[in-house]
């Protein structure tokens, strides 16, 4: 309950001050370039990595990047760049 209230308050603060919401709400920022590159900032770790699926932990739940021949070009704390043929992005709780 407290968590929800705080997030609502943060949301309205971000709205009011026009701050980037991914920072205020601790959400991932995803940049897709066609179906070739996918940059995800503010992730919280890899859950599973295969050539077909990259499952990432994000703030609420999990993000699944599916495709073919997926490679991780760069991996650092909070930042990941996935190359390959991306077919699907999926959020799941």
């Amino acid at each position: 309950m407290g968590e929800k209230k705080s997030s609502k308050w943060r949301y309205s603060l971000a709205e009011m001050l026009e701050l980037p919401q991914e920072i205020m709400l601790n959400l991932p920022r995803i940049t897709l370039i066609g179906n070739l590159h996918c940059y995800i900032e503010n992730h919280q770790g890899i859950i599973e990595y295969t050539a077909e699926n990259v499952r990432l932990a994000i703030n609420p739940g999990e993000l699944i990047v599916s495709g073919r021949d997926l490679t991780i070009r760069y991996l650092a704390n909070e930042e990941i760049a996935i190359d390959g043929i991306i077919e699907k992005l999926q959020y799941s709780a």
């Binding site: 890899i46 990595y49 050539a51 997926l70 991780i72 760069y74 991996l75 704390n77």
Partner: peptide, 28 residues
Amino acid sequence: NAEKLINLALYHDIPLWDLQKETDKIVL
């Protein structure tokens, strides 16, 4: 537990690049 090791590496601020999944191993 290869993914777990990678997450631990991230936690310790070790940058990794050119990760590639092969049948039973991850090359990086």
